[in-house]
């Protein structure tokens, strides 16, 4: 039983490390790294389930009858792409947050927001606006 479920347990451990980083760490980039670990552990879970004893990679060859299950592979190919897509958008957001707040630490951002909460003035961050400010400076 230990060997049979070993992969699944490791997956759970990895998943929880990822989730812990996402929730407990305040640095936005670190959170994204945590998210990557979290997602990758799900990939490992799917791929482990596709494995079959005595099987080979699912590419048809003469004389082989036992192949690992191709379907989870297909699903995870898609999931990997989804993962990188999310990472790219998240990183783009981080770059913009750094520009607008001057920090990428969760606590400092929330501090700044709570100070500005009651002001009616917009915290404008568009690039065109930045240019305009620059001229005034």
């Amino acid at each position: 039983m230990i060997m049979g479920l070993f992969n699944d347990w490791v997956v759970v451990v990895l998943m929880m490390i990822g989730l812990y980083i996402i929730i407990a760490h305040g640095n936005l980039i670190k959170k994204i790294v945590g998210l990557t670990i979290f997602q990758t552990s799900v990939f490992i879970f799917y791929i482990s389930m596709a494995k079959i004893d005595g099987g080979t990679a699912p590419i048809l060859v003469d004389g082989v009858t036992q192949y690992s299950n191709p379907l989870p592979h297909v699903l995870i190919l898609t999931a990997i792409v989804v993962g990188i897509a999310t990472t790219a958008v998240a990183l783009a957001l981080i770059v913009r947050i750094k520009e607008a707040y001057g920090t990428i630490e969760e606590e400092e951002i929330q501090e700044q927001d709570s100070q500005h909460k009651d002001s009616h003035k917009l915290n404008i961050h568009n690039s065109s606006e930045i240019n305009r400010d620059k001229k005034e400076c």
Binding site: T86, V89, I94, I109, L122, H125
Partner: peptide, 13 residues
């Protein structure tokens, strides 16, 4: 327009 939109989007993400 508001910079808090970025932070909200990140949290949502």
């Amino acid at each position: 327009k508001d910079r808090r939109a970025l932070w909200a989007a990140y949290q949502y993400l």
